[in-house]
Design a protein around this nucleic acid. Sequence first.
DNA 1: CGATATCCGACGAAATCACTCGGATATGCG
DNA 2: CGCATATCCGAGTGATTTCGTCGGATATCG
Lengths: 139, 139
Amino acid sequence: MVQLARHYGTGPASLAGIAAEEDLPRAYLEQLVVNLREAGLVVSTRGAHGGYELTRPPAAIAMGEVLRALEGPIAPMFCASDDPEHATTCDRSSRCTVNILWVRVRDAITSTLDSMTLADLAPPRVVALDDQEGALIAT
Amino acid sequence: MVQLARHYGTGPASLAGIAAEEDLPRAYLEQLVVNLREAGLVVSTRGAHGGYELTRPPAAIAMGEVLRALEGPIAPMFCASDDPEHATTCDRSSRCTVNILWVRVRDAITSTLDSMTLADLAPPRVVALDDQEGALIAT
DNA sequence: CGATATCCGACGAAATCACTCGGATATGCG
DNA sequence: CGCATATCCGAGTGATTTCGTCGGATATCG
């Protein structure tokens, strides 16, 4: 996703290219990107010169969305899930006092995850087209 | 550990007892408690009427300590570990911009974990010896 | 002595993670 | 058209981790 953010605005990027840049197996990326597409974070264009593009500018994509798409609902424990659908109330819930701990941990995770966007992780994009408004995102 | 906190001050509690209360296999608890002992969170007294006791009052044991003892250093990713010993710098570190995300997530986790103590999770201890100062910790 | 405990090390089943394989389908270009 | 380049799709594998089991040695109280 960071690679896609890097290429944002310059047309679709192929998995083969990203695989080379990150050296990860192409076949693996293929599998991952399915989830991203289903989550509506990327769109694909098939055929030659095809590839994937972000559907929104990097600054508008929270890391929480990315991780939820890739790894499912955020839940340090199955009884403290992000997604109310998957929140299986454990059979121990009556006596279990630990749940609130996990809920707090989860909230801490999700809030930091949702407070960072792809733009925060995308490379500084040094020496871009124009220089003048360069120092917006100082590292 | 919550069970041990509950019994704090009333002598050692046997694993068999805790196993019954939490219905977990005794043999499994045995394995877990080894780590707690090595971390200095509990002490054992062997023989009949033996068992385990917390070495400190529940309010002085942060949940972070407990989890670090049980599950090792806190690290959402191997490249963002709590413990500098285990912080294996990944071979990708030069190009990887995602690390700071994991570091922030880890800090969020550790700070919420260290901000809660066993006393926070220990049962309200309803109907204790004396009634008068009962409403200290309202659920 | 004998019941009740902790101690210790190894083993096993199930789930998850990261990744592979083989092929079908769609698109651009000469 | 025809071929190279891509995405699409579903099943399968291998290593690691997690949760637990089993059997027996050692210590202590009554």
